Simulated assay, not measured.
Amino acid sequence: MTPVLVTPPTGELIDMEQLKLQCRTDGPEEEQLLAGYVAAAIGWLDGWGGLLGRAIQPQSWALDVSAAGRIRLPMPDVVSASAEYASETAPLALSIDAGGAVVEVTAPCRLLFDCAMPEPKRALATQAVMLLAATWFRFRETVGTASMNELPFGVRALVQALRWRRV
């Protein structure tokens, strides 16, 4: 069961002025380049298929379920869930444990769920995106194959703290 993004995140995760300070640039001519690095970093880290395996910013996902029963949702930080049955949409009660959110469905359905990373963790994710974008800005071309496969230490530490470990 692979979740599908229904409503992508909106709003800006990174303050461009703060990133320009981080990168020590003050010219508007490099803003587009920095925005591209931010988008790439978020795309690489965010969502079910991203390196973190979780939603950095609030977003909605769907999951098709083929039978009734208890379903463990594939992402953490779920704040609400509902089931679209053939004739109705019903809110679902969330049960949260160490493995994440679990819901109970009464028939095959389409599960809809909203994820929102808690603010303290979002601050860490924001810092990881900024460090990654700044690294890509500073080292615009790779020097060798080793550098292509390594995360900067600060990014690696933040990713390890945030990465969702699926059970």
Rank of each mutant, 00 (worst) to 15 (best):
D64P: 04
A41I: 09
W61R: 05
L111N: 00
P3S: 07
G99D: 14
A41C: 11
G154H: 07
E12W: 11
A93P: 02
L94Y: 07
A55M: 06
M117Y: 03
E84W: 06
L158D: 00
M16Q: 12
L94M: 08
V167T: 13
L124N: 03
W44F: 14
E31N: 14
A98P: 10
L124C: 05
R156M: 01
R72N: 04
W44I: 03
A128K: 01
R140T: 11
A133N: 03
L73S: 04
L132E: 07
L51C: 06
G49H: 12
P9M: 08
L45Q: 00
L112E: 12
L34F: 07
E104M: 06
Q57V: 10
Q160Y: 10
V129W: 04
A41M: 11
R122M: 14
A40D: 12
V155C: 01
R156Y: 01
E88G: 01
L19P: 11
L162M: 08
A62M: 11
P91V: 05
A39L: 11
E88K: 02
Q32K: 11
Q18A: 14
A161K: 15
Q22F: 12
G154Y: 03
L92I: 02
A98C: 11
V143G: 09
T142F: 12
E17W: 07
T2F: 07
E104R: 04
Q57M: 15
D77W: 02
R138H: 13
V143A: 13
G11A: 00
L124T: 12
Q32C: 06
Q160G: 13
T145S: 06
D77N: 15
R156Q: 01
L132Y: 03
R166I: 03
V167Q: 14
E17P: 03
A161W: 07
Q59A: 15
G69I: 10
E104K: 07
N149D: 04
R122H: 08
A123Q: 14
P9Y: 11
G154R: 08
E141N: 12
S80G: 14
A128I: 05
I56F: 03
A40N: 11
R70P: 08
R165A: 09
P58K: 12
I56L: 04
I42K: 01
G100V: 06
D15P: 06
L111K: 00
A86F: 10
L45V: 01
T10N: 11
E17M: 07
V129H: 07
G50I: 06
S95W: 04
Q59W: 05
T106V: 09
V102F: 08
T7D: 09
Q22P: 02
T10D: 09
A125S: 10
K121S: 10
V103E: 05
A107P: 08
R156F: 05
V38C: 05
L151R: 03
L34D: 02
L162W: 09
D46T: 09
M117N: 03
A83S: 08
L132I: 02
P9I: 02
R163P: 05
G50T: 04
L131V: 04
R165Q: 14
L5N: 00
A123L: 15
E29P: 09
S87Q: 15
A93L: 09
E31F: 12
L112W: 13
L131E: 12
E88M: 10
P91I: 06
L52W: 01
G11C: 01
E119I: 13
L162R: 08
P3T: 07
A133K: 04
L94I: 05
P8T: 14
K121G: 05
A90E: 07
D46M: 07
A35S: 15
V4N: 14
A39D: 15
